[in-house]
Design a protein around this nucleic acid. Structure first.
Length: 421
RNA sequence: GGAGAGAUGGCUGAGUGGUCGAAAGCGGCACACUGCUAAUGUGUUGUUCUAGUUUUUUGCUAGGACCCAGGGUUCGAAUCCCUGUCUCUCCGCCA
């Protein structure tokens, strides 16, 4: 959500921002509704003043009691009538307010979508194989690491069992990431994966794309698509002290996505599944630190992938490819030799005060003034996808897979994943 | 699942129809005092909306709202009634 005062003062800027994000919304209608809304508030407040005065008079002067009660009843009726109109206007106003996306930061390239995203850099040598590299699905099948066939029997399409070393790799990755991030003041956290509507809304996920989210109607709970949705609302209606910021969390959770809009895309394997585990970074910080914090998140994502020695590139998303909440976003794409292409493995967004406004998360600065915090999120590891990248990049000529050196301490005796006959 | 108790400012906690935006204490802030640390004294201390005002901000003035949330009763609600949410205690069930 944005500040209505800011919208009133800069309507053209907002119109442009919506256009750049490819969101169609009638800002003039919003401004008109705002005027109406304020007008009603003024009228209601004036009547309430009279109401209060009458109540005061009755207390003091008993002689005119009957007359005053009559007057009070009259005012009460007028108020309730006006309040109804105010409520209607406000409802419509709020609906529009929630539809306005977070304007992109100024350094974000204006563009339509994927094709306009900027590739910022390539890091790591693309490995040369003296044999034809296999894709992870073939590898995983031969080594008995991923079972999507049985998963289909149990749960349907887009599910998978991680088995054997794949399961151990997940445990190793969790250890590896948490050991690294605790050093950077991240508070490790395992959040609830079922959340209430208010939380989902506050994080900006229900405005569009409700189709993508699992919902349990009997309990009125949503399944998180990322632990961000569960971590952000933790501090809803709270006030941070300035010195508490940045407040960083490292969340680990299963994530659930309906993948409603991706029929036919990546249908095999576990690249795109309804359920996967993810380590997620989240930060509440001061507005002026947010760019720094965002770069910091990106640097962590890079460092983790670098430590695994997986080649990747950094993508800066254009305006058209940003979600509602993000003002700026970077993706990391890992090189997958078996598929001969880069695929997204992490994503980090600066959501400025967009989520904080909806959730009412503020901090008190040294002068005692209250401000909204900025929120940032970033994938540390989407575990399934990292496993895919490891399998493909670390495959050997004999069909075995070497365990990345940095993970070996967390894998027991295992140095290789070897065919399981 | 059954029975009961509760939700008040940054915190503890008083308040059962008008004198309450709310006692008291703690904490915070300011000032004073005292070699230092510390102690003491005095004062001050919530949020938010609307309008006006200031060149803008800080602010100021007037008014509205806020004592878990939403409804209701009443001229008037923190206080009474209803619904919901959450927390706690006891019993039952259970990973």
């Amino acid at each position: 959500m944005l500040d209505i005062k800011f919208i009133c003062e800069n309507p053209n800027l907002i119109k442009k921002a919506c256009e750049n994000k490819r969101v169609n919304i009638d800002i003039d209608k919003l401004l008109k509704l705002d005027k109406e809304r304020k007008n009603f508030i003024q009228k209601v407040d004036d009547l309430k003043k009279i109401k209060n005065e009458i109540a005061e008079k009755i207390k003091i002067d008993f002689s005119k009691k009957d007359e005053l009660i009559k007057e009070g009843k009259n005012i009460k009726e007028k108020i309730s009538k006006l309040e109804k109109e105010l409520e209607e206007t406000e409802k419509e106003f709020n609906k529009l307010m929630y539809l306005i996306p977070n304007p992109p930061l100024l350094d974000v390239k204006i563009g339509q979508g994927e094709k306009d995203n900027e590739i910022l850099k390539h890091v790591g040598e693309i490995p040369k194989f003296n044999f034809k590299p296999q894709n992870y699905i073939e590898l995983a099948e031969k080594l008995d690491l991923i079972d999507t066939k049985r998963a289909a029997k149990i749960s349907g399409s887009r599910f998978g069992y991680l088995k054997n070393e794949a399961a151990l790799l997940e445990f190793a990755l969790i250890q590896f990431v948490s050991q690294n991030l605790i050093k950077e003041n991240f508070i490790p956290i395992i959040p609830p994966v079922m959340i209430k509507r208010h939380s989902m809304e506050g994080m900006g996920y229900l405005t569009r794309g409700e189709e993508e989210i699992y919902y349990l109607p009997k309990d009125e709970l949503y399944l998180v698509g990322t632990s961000e949705q569960s971590i952000g609302p933790m501090h809803c209606d709270e006030i941070f002290k300035e010195e508490e910021l940045p407040k960083r969390y490292l969340g680990f959770s299963s994530c659930f996505r309906r993948e409603a809009g991706s029929y036919g895309k990546d249908t095999k394997g576990i690249l795109r599944v309804h359920q996967f585990d993810k380590l997620e970074m989240f930060s509440f910080c001061k507005p002026k630190d947010s760019e720094k914090e965002h770069d910091f998140f990106l640097s962590i994502e890079e460092k983790l992938v670098q430590l695994l020695k997986i080649p990747y590139r950094v993508i800066k998303m254009c305006t058209g490819d940003l979600g509602d909440s993000a003002a700026k976003k970077f993706d990391l794409e890992a090189w997958l030799p078996g598929q001969n292409e880069f695929r997204e493995i992490t994503s980090t967004s600066n959501c400025t005060d967009f989520q904080a406004r909806r959730l009412n998360i503020r901090y008190r600065n040294k002068n005692g003034k209250l401000n909204f915090v900025y929120t940032l999120n970033g994938t540390a590891f989407a575990i399934g996808r990292i496993i895919i990248a490891i399998l493909e990049n670390y495959q050997q000529a004999d069909g075995s897979i070497k365990i990345p050196k940095i993970l070996q301490p967390y894998m027991g005796e295992k140095k290789f994943i070897i065919h399981n006959s």
